[in-house]
Design a binder for these strands. Structure first.
Lengths: 338, 338
DNA sequence: TAAGATACTGCAATCGCTTGCATGTAGAAT
DNA sequence: ATTCTACATGCAAGCGATTGCAGTATCTTA
């Protein structure tokens, strides 16, 4: 099966022009007379001509597409980020190619390298929870692949980054729990590798400190796989409950929903007694039972900002030396009274 | 900024061979001596050579990528389908490019045409709720673009299709409501254009008929935009409530969550009195309050089957004349006692 | 010894598009 | 009449990989 379309050559032949003239007419170059342009444009329209982007990519050595790596698209936060990315990319005539790491380092590396070999012009990436070694990214970056990190960013990698104000988001959520009378506040969080894990832990600690509540390391549980495995979560919950927490602050979308699920499953009787505050961009929070206080990240905006930065890198005439880390504010959505 | 990689030419120069020899060695052709092959392979490995897929696509007139159109990736059903698609596609060395129609016909058409011009080898599509005119798809299909429809399929379009057993899924859900004592069962559903809407309505009617409950058209509410706008849903709920339904059967993922949300928002006092059964692939159903009975579609499997069919079309030596419509069974997950 | 078989390797065209350079024409300026 | 400028168009190379055909070297076989 072959997919047939007309080429610049067909147009040239039909109009008795050379391919160069046609190409230039289509690109509206000054060398071509208005008359010829009209002729070409009209004919191109008639045969529904579409430039072959593959050929153009080969010639111009760029593909007008940008790669995205997230852990899961079935995650409210990431799918909202992707919507933000698309909204900007399509306006600027870029295409996006989405890949999922499923929180696996191996998968992430494979996907990135696959994308890179498919001539993406730039990469937007949120690291997987397993990722520690980012040398493969450094090497691609050194070869000239523009990269912008968002949400989960590496520590020492000089490029643009876009993150939420994780410290403040965590601080606010924890403070909210404290102000509603909770004193034994557990913290369920992601892999220690992640930037967001560290920042959110700091916010949590700071809120405790402000109200003179002692920080107890045993109240912090890390989930290596970011809640991808329910066993991991149930284990964490099982270890936390004997410490009698009256509140839990949870640091990611998947963990938040997963933790409530685990609580309900393993200890339904206490599920309603523990106040929960967590990061989540789910638009179904209002339906949850037990209900919770959520920290919403500006996901859509994050995607937009990251994409703008990436495109600016891609289209930069000369190497960029000044990099920004944009920090966007989160929003605290307090638990509904019921 | 330019992204530098080594080409076949570089290898040829370094090894004092011609590009054709290198190309043939890499593709393990019989004309090349074992010795030369080893040499080339070793060097290619050393410089981390990756064939430029753009160049290969141009030469071979195919891109090894397949396009996907869904209404929203932020939808459990679709994101699971996508995971199924990926699982097969990557195994067969295809890449996937995902686009969202956001339930808009215009957007859908735009995206499909964009994808087609980017030389996708085939298309997997679930129609938007607005879509009525599929001539643009017919024309691409006629030009040789393989297309497989899933979930939301058009009526008269001769190609492979993969759908859930919507009739049975709806029948089971409605029957379940009846067996739990409900008698005034409303039906909240998608745009009338969609195949799934018709099939699910039939299942609903059949269940009513089986128990000699009269079908009342006024108990059926259509949402043109598939629940993309909350106003639309709230309006539907507002019109339904005066009819005093004791059960509602809802026919799509987004509508199901949206409807519960609308109920809670506009009429919290009755929200718990109405039994709800609906299609949804959300993995958070257990958290919902009020809880509900859900019809789960075999989303992952649907993606897999559709992809296998599509790839078989793409790789077919001669035009295909026999088309299949695969029907996959749904699963009824009954409401949890609380 | 000549001719054929076998094993390797390279030349060059091709996919569709872009673009530097050369060419050609007409009118204006010297 | 000669030179210059402006405008319009075409030639051909090149992006990276694939592949039909041709060429060379070595070895068989009659």
């Amino acid at each position: 099966m072959r997919f047939e379309t007309s080429t610049i050559k067909d147009i040239a032949k039909a109009l008795g022009l050379s391919t160069s003239t046609v190409s230039r007419a289509l690109r509206d170059r000054y060398e071509i007379s208005e008359e010829t342009k009209k002729l070409v444009l009209a004919y191109a329209e008639k045969v529904n001509y579409r430039a072959n982007p593959i050929a153009r990519s080969l010639k111009e050595r760029r593909s007008y597409s940008i790669g995205i790596i997230v852990s899961e698209i079935a995650n409210n936060f990431f799918s909202q980020v992707i919507n933000g990315i698309e909204s900007i990319a399509y306006d600027r005539d870029y295409h996006v190619i989405i890949s999922q790491s499923h929180e696996s380092y191996k998968q992430e590396k494979l996907n990135v390298e696959h994308l890179a070999s498919r001539s993406i012009d730039g990469l937007l990436i949120a690291l997987s929870s397993e990722t520690q070694d980012i040398d493969y990214l450094r090497s691609l970056y050194a070869k000239g692949l523009p990269i912008v990190f968002f949400d989960r960013v590496p520590k020492d990698f000089e490029t643009h980054k876009v993150i939420a104000n994780n410290f403040k988001g965590s601080f606010d959520a924890t403070e909210h729990l404290i102000l509603s009378g909770k004193r034994i506040i557990a913290h369920l969080t992601n892999s220690e590798n992640l930037s967001i894990t560290k920042e959110r832990l700091e916010g949590y600690k700071a809120a405790l400190a402000k109200y003179h509540i002692e920080f107890k390391p045993e109240l912090v549980k890390y989930c290596q796989h970011g809640g991808m495995h329910s066993a991991e979560l149930e284990q964490a919950v099982k270890e936390l409950l004997p410490l009698n927490p009256d509140g839990i602050f949870i640091s990611s979308d998947r963990l938040t929903t997963g933790c409530i699920m685990a609580l309900k499953k393993t200890n339904p009787e206490v599920a309603h007694k523990i106040a929960i505050a967590g990061f989540t961009n789910s638009n179904l929070v209002e339906l949850f039972n037990p209900s919770l206080t959520s920290v919403k990240q500006p996901a859509f905006e994050m995607g937009q900002v990251a994409t703008e930065l990436l495109i600016s890198m891609i289209e930069a005439k000369r190497p960029i030396t000044e990099f920004e880390t944009k920090v966007l504010d989160t929003e605290l959505v307090k638990m509904q009274k019921r």
